[in-house]
Design a binder for these strands. Structure first.
Lengths: 332, 332
DNA sequence: CAGGGCTCAGAAATCCATTTCTCGGATCCG
DNA sequence: CGGATCCGAGAAATGGATTTCTGAGCCCTG
């Protein structure tokens, strides 16, 4: 199992010193062509592969970036992770992935572990906009940290989508469809995007219909909560003409409960989602939603963390635009 | 950025040698209580954290396991990855995740990179049951490799679900519902599970209705292919009474196309999926499908790779049972 | 009381690639 | 032709933790 060839062996086989082998392989300095050829031949013949652990120790750079996500099974994250992994791979870096299970304790623990591993930087989607703060700040004191999608520490690098703009697109779309009485089914107030979406909804809707701004229902990010919220809405005296949902999963739950209650979408009420996950096209009717540029977010996050590592001192804050995708659930 | 405290500093602060600090922290040998206390106090005071890179070099163990998946955005994998990550975390190990983008070249490249990183072992879902073989074999010559879900090298560790049994459950269920004329919408023949499912279907159905065994449509793992396949089926002279699909995504595509063609499920034809992803419950009608024990697969894979690292020489092959989940698409 | 065994802690070797230091030999210029 | 400058390659230091080797000190026993 441990028959690894070392640089010393290559050096001996080529009749040179390890230093020369290093120089040839790094290509940093000029080496006599003959020696160079001999070294390359020996390396090739012995199947030499540099030990990255030893290199990391000497150069103080491991070539790996850590990423912490609250829950990989949320279909939002795999897309971001994929983009991150690709971009890192392109730059010859590796991804050390950790799941915080939506728990601050676990999050703090994996952050510490990532630091111990001497990663080059950290990408994190904080699981709690308040409670995650101190640990992220601490980590940021040691390596570059970029917050992805969810914001916890305001004065630290952030890459995410424009929640406000996305919500505005939804509300404008609904108003254009003639909606006035709306309701909002929100999700966990623990995370920044949920809060931003809710605040944006309240502010935007207030301009159209004062009571709609109060008609909000807060739960979590699950199908079950969507169903529950829809039942409550249906149970109240008068049905709104649109139900705005904090994400696709919740919206699908709402659709299911409305279907069971015999309420037709979009005839009786319009419904919107958020994220444009695969669920949006699978649901019946297909969901109007907003698409965040997830791959761009992943790429930009990598770029930001690497720029910060290079010493760029400014705090970057990249807010990317989202795109309204109108479908059958709002009569499109 | 690089103000890390070293063991030497802790040693000096405590007035002992680095060796003693190591012994105290490892707890391996008995150390005089006074020294022990002094060391712990210094370590605490200086905020000492062992450099895992240095430790990895010396102990020849990095404490990280590599995983290669063909596509993280396939909802199948995040669940497995999550289980893997949890199990590794529980055992104080880390996950280095790579995406092979369903390409053998890329897969070979990331395998080599993982080896260079001196990971303890590798978990891999091969992207091609034939072409992935040689590189996986090569990697297995250096570190323990466990194939997860998809098999490429028969005589190497494998953990996955019982495809045959799962398909049997589906066919039996359909037969019990009175179906006789069936069709199968398959996916990429490049991966082992697709092949196993197809062969199982052919074998099982032959016992019920010979022509059904021939009525198979092979494409890939996408929604679009499901739609396309359904259109072809509808275009032929007589509709089967059940359409068996290789996975949920394909089944949802089939459902959509049937809906557009005005064919009612389950009245006119029954439809089944495979995997029991979230899509199965979101689709209308809800999909009958089989649930693979993904979390168990992830856990067992970790256990297998660690057992192999400990030197257990036998090739393990864990085939876990799947569970039929009957829903509306087959009249349940 | 001397020698054998034991324990514990420091000195030093080790893991392996990189990088600095050093020096012999060649080139160049006055 | 002698001294300054370069160049290239080997020797050695480096990174930081672990582990083996060593030896001092102590206890026990014959």
């Amino acid at each position: 199992m441990d028959r690894a060839v070392t640089m010393r062996q290559v050096a001996e086989a080529a009749g040179v010193s390890p230093a020369t082998v290093s120089r040839v392989l790094a290509g940093s300095t000029r080496v006599h062509p003959d020696l160079r050829a001999r070294v390359l031949a020996s390396a090739e013949r012995l199947g030499y592969r540099a030990n990255r652990v030893a290199r990391a120790l000497r150069t103080r750079s491991t070539g790996t970036v850590g990423m912490v996500v609250p829950n990989i099974t949320n279909p939002f994250f795999p897309v971001v992770i994929q983009a991150v992994e690709r971009e890192l791979h392109r730059r010859n870096l590796r991804l050390l992935l950790c799941d915080s299970a939506d728990e601050v304790r676990q999050e703090a623990e994996v952050l510490q572990i990532l630091l111990d591993h001497r990663i080059e930087g950290i990408l994190i989607s904080a699981c709690d906009r308040i409670a995650s703060r101190s640990m992220i700040r601490m980590a940021a004191g040691l390596v570059p940290v970029v917050q992805v999608d969810r914001l916890a520490v305001p004065d630290l690098h952030f890459v995410g989508a424009d929640q406000e703009g996305a919500m505005a697109a939804i509300v404008e779309h609904l108003v254009a469809q003639g909606c006035r009485r709306m309701a909002y089914v929100s999700s966990s107030p623990r995370i920044s995007t949920a809060v931003e979406r809710l605040r944006a909804y309240e502010r935007l809707v207030r301009a159209v219909d004062e009571p709609s701004a109060e008609r909000t229902y807060t739960g979590d990010f699950t199908l079950a909560w969507g169903r529950e919220a829809a039942r409550r809405i249906v149970g109240e005296h008068d049905l709104p003409d649109a139900i705005v949902c904090a994400n696709d999963l919740v919206a699908v739950g709402v659709l299911q409960a409305l279907d069971e209650a015999g309420i037709s979408v979009p005839r009786d009420v319009l419904v919107t989602g958020f994220d444009d996950t695969v669920l949006a096209t699978v649901a019946r009717p297909q969901l109007t939603t907003v698409r965040q540029p997830l791959a761009d977010i992943g790429r930009e996050a990598v770029e930001t963390v690497l720029a910060a590592r290079q010493g760029s001192p400014a705090t970057t804050r990249k807010v990317l635009p989202s795109l309204l995708v109108a479908r059958a659930s709002t009569g499109a």
